[in-house]
């Protein structure tokens, strides 16, 4: 009998683990903690001997859906108008591992809702579900500084994941995370060196590596997915080869899929828009997981179910 050799790599590095959420003994109110990362091989290659955590799915909840595609609103129903109810649907009906709450309404150039209002939203979501939380501001630098600070304080012992710090503006977001030992998303724009650079800035500033989750920017299917896919593979390889500044879990926001025309518009001669849209995001999510994503922020519950099924099968039962 021929003996096919099993090509196991001897990696010198591994991805660190970031723990999100805090339980009662730690002063938190989550029902359990979630460990992300920990991979010691390229994704899902258990024959290399690693048994990593399955990538987690974070259900997206936004505090304003004024520019949301109709299709998703239909899929989610009434819940989209109440973040607390929406989060509950994600956890109870679709088994989301955590919630990603985006406080877009605080943007002063749009709805400009107050910091207090945002704080109330965060509180209501925290009360309605017991999974860990990711909280994003609106992406408006000055306002986010205030919003994230308030969120950090009101959930001081909950070990949130705050989004995000980037090279041009990392101090206020990092400070908000450091103040109460939350974790922070370090964002960079599709480049291995920039990803490393922002992590160096954060650690120099005093953020611990166990607090950092890297967002290398997930471009959706048909809109540059291949760039993200390869940048992430290169980040993961560099981390496994020992680059300690890249040995942190990665987070991918697949909701960018809903910017693609194919996910939102009819195509002449083809029906099935709904199915197309769901698979558009599911495909983006699967590619993100295959390239090394440890947390996937997803919008469509059906797309999330498909990706979860694939990941469960990839991780295997034993």
């Amino acid at each position: 009998m021929v003996d096919v050799p099993i090509p196991k790599e001897k990696w010198s590095g591994k991805i660190g683990v970031v723990v999100l959420g805090a339980v009662m003994e730690e002063g938190g109110t989550r029902s359990k903690k979630l460990a992300i990362g920990g991979g010691a091989s390229m994704p899902f290659l258990t024959f290399e001997g690693s048994k990593p955590n399955r990538p987690a799915i974070a259900g997206e909840v936004v505090d304003t859906v004024s520019d949301f595609p109709e299709l998703v609103k239909r899929e989610l129903g009434e819940a989209v108008n109440d973040p607390a109810a929406w989060a509950k649907v994600w956890v109870e009906d679709y088994g989301a591992d955590l919630i990603c709450l985006k406080l877009h309404s605080t943007n002063p150039e749009e709805e400009n809702r107050s910091v207090e209002e945002a704080a109330r939203t965060v509180r209501s979501v925290m009360q309605s579900v017991r999974v860990p939380l990711i909280v994003y501001g609106s992406g408006h630098e000055e306002k986010d500084a205030k919003v994230l600070e308030a969120v950090s304080d009101l959930a001081a012992k909950e070990r949130l994941l705050l989004g995000h710090a980037e090279e041009s503006a990392y101090k206020t977001a990092s400070a908000a995370a450091m103040a109460n030992n939350h974790a922070i998303i370090s964002f960079s724009n599709l480049d291995v060196n920039l990803a490393k650079q922002i992590n160096i800035l954060l650690t120099d500033f005093g953020v611990k590596k166990e607090q950092i989750v890297l967002d290398p920017l997930m471009a959706s299917l048909g809109m540059g997915l291949e760039y993200s896919y390869s940048v992430m593979e290169r980040i993961r390889l560099a981390a496994l080869m020992g680059d300690s500044m890249l040995q942190v879990p990665m987070i991918c926001d697949t909701t960018s899929s809903w910017k693609a025309k194919e996910a939102t518009e009819e195509i002449a001669g083809h029906d099935g828009l709904e199915e197309r849209a769901v698979w558009w995001e599911a495909t983006t999510g699967l590619a993100a997981a295959m390239a090394g994503g440890d947390v996937l922020i997803m919008r469509s519950p059906r797309a999330a179910s498909i990706v979860r099924r694939a990941m469960d099968e990839l991780v295997g039962g034993d």
Binding site: L221, L225, E262, H270, E275, R276, W279, W280, T283
Partner: peptide, 9 residues
């Protein structure tokens, strides 16, 4: 509708 995602990937 599913095939399109496959093709584009």
């Amino acid at each position: 509708a599913q095939a399109l995602s496959l093709f584009v990937l």
